Amino acid sequence: MSADNPGPVTRLVDIVFPGDTNHHGTLFGGVGLSHMDKVAFIAASRHGRVDFVTASCERIDFAAPARLGEIVELTGRLVRVGRRSVSAAVELHAEALLTGERRLCTRGVFNMVAVGVEAGATLPPLQPDGGDDGVFRMVEMVFPQQLSHYGTLYGGNALAAMGKAAFITATRHARKPIVMAATREVNFTHAIGQGEVMELVPRVEATGRSSMTIAIDLWSEDLLAGTRRLCGQGSFVMVAVDENQRPVPIDG
Rank of each mutant, 00 (worst) to 15 (best):
Q127V: 15
R175N: 06
C105S: 15
R46P: 14
A89F: 08
G151E: 06
A158F: 07
M36H: 01
Q233F: 02
L27N: 03
F136Q: 13
S210T: 13
L68G: 06
G226E: 06
A43M: 02
G48L: 01
L27Y: 04
A114N: 02
L33S: 03
V16T: 05
V186L: 15
L97E: 13
G7A: 14
Q146Y: 03
N22G: 05
R77Q: 15
N5M: 09
S235F: 01
N187C: 09
G48T: 03
L126H: 10
G131D: 04
A206M: 03
S85G: 07
M212E: 13
M238R: 08
H23R: 05
G226Q: 05
D251N: 14
A240L: 02
E205D: 12
L147R: 02
H149S: 13
A165F: 03
N5W: 10
V39L: 08
S220C: 00
H35Q: 11
R246C: 08
R246I: 09
A182C: 05
E91N: 11
M141Y: 00
T26Y: 01
S56M: 12
C105R: 10
E118I: 01
A182E: 11
R46L: 08
A240S: 15
I216Y: 04
G134Y: 11
E199R: 12
R84W: 02
I214H: 11
K176Q: 15
G116D: 03
A121Y: 03
R84P: 04
V109W: 01
R83V: 06
A94Q: 04
G120P: 11
F17H: 11
V53F: 09
A206D: 10
V90R: 10
R103G: 08
M180H: 02
S235N: 03
V248S: 12
M198I: 10
G134M: 13
V113K: 10
D4Y: 11
G19V: 04
V31Q: 12
E196A: 07
T169R: 14
G29L: 14
V179N: 09
L27V: 04
K38R: 13
V241Q: 05
H173V: 05
G131T: 00
E196T: 05
I192Y: 03
F188S: 13
H149F: 11
G232H: 02
T152M: 03
K164V: 07
A160Y: 08
H190D: 15
S2F: 02
E118R: 13
A44V: 03
A119E: 15
Q233C: 01
P124Q: 08
H47W: 12
R172D: 11
M141Q: 05
L200K: 09
R246F: 10
G208I: 06
A165V: 01
A66L: 02
T54Y: 10
M36K: 06
E196R: 01
H47T: 06
K164T: 09
R172S: 09
Q233V: 04
A43T: 12
E205R: 07
E118D: 14
L123D: 02
M198K: 10
L104Y: 13
A161K: 02
V142K: 01
D133H: 09
I15R: 05
F188R: 09
V81E: 13
M162Q: 01
L147N: 07
Q245N: 14
L224H: 12
R80L: 11
